[in-house]
Design a protein around this nucleic acid. Structure first.
Lengths: 146, 146
DNA sequence: GTTAGTGTAACTATCATTGTTACAATGGAT
DNA sequence: ATCCATTGTAACAATGATAGTTACACTAAC
């Protein structure tokens, strides 16, 4: 099991929007950098747009960041692309036997721990901004895709 | 996406082995508490056995814990059932365009962060032992499944 | 009006998960 | 030695998510 690459692609997209901020970032252009189908990009872009991270308009070529990259955390991106639901990282078997002490208590015993573990992961994402990524990626690279 | 319920079931199984330590915990018996098929239990038990957390023998009815529950962390269980590979919680798109500064750097920029986030989650699991679970579940419950 | 680009539905292929049946192998009970 | 409950595992089905693809309606810049 893995968390969908949608998340990584979304980070890629937003970083590219920043580094290509003076150019026109169409889904075609972005898909060339990500190396996938433009529709995949548009689907993710739609989620980013709904989450208020990027702006796109039908008919108008090119997406733009909706906020400064220093104000977008990886947690924002992660939530935007719906890769993991709230308290939904771990799944728990649904119908344990209520006749059994273990069966009738296991869910409530485990859930807070699973929840805390998920939160620890998400807190880590919250501490990183797109700016950190872009600095790491493009700080030394002068140009954008040819 | 969710982490397989194998993990939750494994915790359930091991907790049950503890609370039923004086009884005979066959896959049939356990499956009754988990409410699933005995084969599902045997499959998970096989992983727990390989990981040195439980002992089972072909032909001999009933599994037993291989260690004291205070010495088994949820991380041990999580690793045992292979729900997430090392550095494999997040997936990264595999072939970004090397011609593009973003494409050729995104993977190495993101990976350490993904790795740290995963580690934060796993560290949380490492801090909880089966004893914590069993105390929470069965501390007040006197009996085991009828 | 033409045209490039976005939005989205629909379909495919692939994969992991979970449950199921089936059966060989094991070892305790008799 | 035989019986038989149990374990170990292969094989298969059903389900659901993912990622890619084609197709096409809709939008707005020119």
């Amino acid at each position: 099991m893995t968390i969908s690459s949608r998340f990584a692609v979304a980070i890629h997209i937003l970083s590219l929007l920043e580094l290509n901020k003076d150019g026109v970032s169409t889904s075609e252009y972005i898909s060339g950098s990500v190396n996938t189908n433009p529709v995949v990009i548009r689907r993710i872009m739609s989620m980013l747009s709904k989450a208020g991270l990027a702006n796109v308009r039908p008919g108008v070529a090119g997406a733009k960041l909706a906020r400064d990259i220093s104000e977008i955390t990886l947690l924002d991106v992660y939530r935007a692309v719906h890769v993991v639901e709230e308290d939904g990282l771990f799944s728990v078997h649904e119908k344990p036997n209520p006749e059994c002490p273990v069966g009738r208590n296991i869910q409530t015993s485990i859930e807070p721990i699973f929840s805390a573990a998920q939160k620890a992961m998400e807190d880590t994402l919250a501490k990183v901004t797109l700016q950190d990524i872009v600095e790491d990626i493009g700080g030394k690279e002068a140009n954008v895709c040819d």
